[in-house]
Write a protein that binds this DNA or RNA. Structure first.
Lengths: 222, 222
DNA sequence: ACAAAAGTGTTAAATGTACACCCATGC
DNA sequence: GCATGGGTGTACATTTAACACTTTTGT
């Protein structure tokens, strides 16, 4: 038995899919599931390990952030490891689309909403919960919400994301006013036909503008 | 050379002392300084290691929270480790007092303000900076500010802490109104004579009340 | 013409911000 | 009696929250 503490890296990938915020989980041999995870290489920076682990699950995210390091002692085991967790946001692919790399392989990684989540190994259920809480917390004072959208989106889609993550309804007019006043989106000039009803204008996120105002808290508080 | 990644734990202890927010630093053999830190034991939970490391520096804190895990590759070394950092708040001992366990041993750990800080090993300067930022961020939506005060304090002392950490002056009347309205302090009925001028009423923090309102953000935003 | 989603302003309430004087004590 | 820090209330500006109807499209 090794007397060394092993360092592992786990990534919570979140995306919006089918009207729910879902996490990517990898099936294990024993029927349970786990976050994409792996052992930290000796010459590997932590964030590089997180990227590697994401790729090994067939996913990619532009937004990656360290979440928390879990170091509970396993109930009874001759192994000891700590798990450095990350959370990552994957853009959804529009109203009815799949998440970016989400053509699910049968028996491979799959996306799960909070309620439908199977049982997870170790601390992983807690890690997923921590990621959801972190996302909710950051929603109001950063632009993380935009990381869940494709490059071009409608304001209704943006509002849906806020409503989903915050778990409450928002007033359409107040929401749009705030977004306009901040000047963090620009119209593409294009429109997109909805399933039914009037077509919606498409917008693009203006990262430059956001960086300038990022200092002040509660920019996007609803 | 070991091919194992070693896990280390480092703690940023912060306190208010002499009108400044100071961090506890331990002198090294080579004249530089470091955070209190040590290697994680095989059977030791992370938070236990943080406590142990604090004690070995002769300090104690009621408030301890994980900060961030640093895993940079050292520029050239056959060793590799990651460092799980914690931040801790030590109550000051009143207006002119020393921090709780702060009778400094010559050549031992000592408290340093941001400007007076000597050069630190590895990432430690960044870790201290991260702790200061985290403290500032949490000040407005948690009661961490109270963790820097002794059990009994004056409202002026409380306000000083907020001003110090936020780096700006606050209006006395508005500050007190907010504290009163929240009902998170209760008068002890005692007073304390100031160096000069009218004696100040003493208050105690009401943790119970705070927990009830903790849900809402920006409770203590100034 | 109707069903469905997009888009648009105004008002009231709550919150935050600015501001100046009296009070109790020690010297 | 004066210098020092403790203590208090009011008015204005800003922000947030609630609310309903018109527009454009596809069928």
């Amino acid at each position: 038995v090794s007397r060394h503490v092993e360092v592992r890296v786990a990534v919570v990938l979140l995306t919006i899919h089918g009207g729910a915020l879902k996490a990517l989980l990898v099936p294990q041999r024993d029927g349970s599931y786990a976050l994409p995870s792996g052992t930290l290489g000796f010459d590997e920076p932590l964030s590089a390990a997180a990227e590697r682990v994401m790729q090994s699950a067939g996913a990619h995210a532009d937004y990656l952030e360290q979440l928390y390091t879990f170091g509970n002692l396993p109930p009874s085991s001759s192994e000891r490891f700590i798990e450095v967790s990350y959370f990552a946001l994957v853009p959804s692919a529009g109203p009815a689309g799949m998440p970016a790399d989400g053509r699910p392989v049968p028996g491979g990684p799959a996306w799960f909403a909070e309620g439908e989540q199977p049982s997870l190994i170790l601390d992983h259920a807690n890690i997923v919960k921590a990621a959801r809480i972190r996302l909710r917390g950051k929603l109001s004072y950063t632009a993380v919400g935009f990381e869940l959208l494709p490059e071009v989106f409608t304001l209704a889609e943006l509002q849906n994301i806020y409503e989903l993550i915050l778990g409450k309804q928002l007033d359409k007019r107040n929401f749009r006013r705030k977004i306009y006043e901040l000047g963090i989106v620009e119209p593409t000039g294009e429109e997109r036909a909805s399933f039914r009803g009037r077509p919606a204008s498409l917008y693009r996120f203006k990262a430059e503008v956001f960086e300038q105002i990022e200092a002040k808290r509660d920019i996007l508080a609803f």
